[in-house]
Amino acid sequence: MTAAWVSGSGAHPPSTGLGGRPVGVVEVVDLNGLRDVEFGDTETELSRRGILRSDVDACGPTLVGYDATSPIFVGDRLVLLWLGEATRTPQGVTAGMAIGQARARYPAARELDAPQGMYRLDGLLARHGDRAYLFLHDGRAVKKIIVGYADWAQRLFHEGHSPC
């Protein structure tokens, strides 16, 4: 993703965070993954490339430059990304967006109802082939986005898993 910065008189370029991206820039995640991070990558490969860190105070490994995004691995392979708020889909869906807007941008998405009597959110599963976006929502707004292999996203929804 290329972010344009227009300079004005006396203005300074935005500060950069990890990964060299300007602070506040919204990252785009597609059904292949993030820039430099693809579904199916191994923990070993991502660590060797300096993208995966396990030496931080977090509930699991983290991705360098994606502080609020949690990778979920199964059998050493990246299967899902639990996204942070500064991430959007190519169709512009972000956490906080009205669920009606997300439905309009993914009209073929399937509704998933959370089990009754549990403190879990409903879901909207936008599947394309073996990949999917899972939008967790409270009936009004998207609260969290998970992206990756569709079977693992659906399993996460039904079994109630989080990155921690």
Rank of each mutant, 00 (worst) to 15 (best):
T2R: 10
A3E: 05
S9E: 14
G10T: 01
H12G: 10
P14D: 03
P14H: 02
T16E: 13
G17D: 02
V23G: 02
D30S: 00
L31A: 11
G33K: 01
D36Y: 12
F39W: 10
F39L: 09
D41I: 07
T42N: 05
T44S: 08
T44K: 09
E45Q: 15
R49P: 12
S54T: 15
V56D: 10
P61S: 11
L63M: 07
T69A: 09
T69Q: 08
V74D: 14
V74N: 10
D76P: 03
D76M: 03
D76A: 06
L78S: 13
L78V: 12
L80I: 11
W82N: 15
L83M: 14
L83Q: 05
T89I: 10
P90C: 06
Q91K: 12
A95K: 04
A98V: 11
A98R: 13
G100I: 01
Q101C: 02
A102Y: 02
A104Y: 01
P107K: 04
A108S: 12
E111Y: 10
L112E: 03
L112C: 03
L112Y: 06
P115F: 13
Q116C: 08
M118D: 12
Y119Q: 13
L121A: 03
L124K: 06
L125G: 00
A126M: 00
L134E: 04
L134I: 04
L134P: 03
L134R: 05
F135M: 13
D138G: 11
A141F: 04
A141V: 12
K143D: 11
K143W: 08
K144Q: 15
Y149D: 12
Y149R: 11
A150R: 04
D151M: 07
W152S: 12
A153K: 01
Q154L: 15
R155G: 12
R155F: 14
L156A: 15
C164H: 08
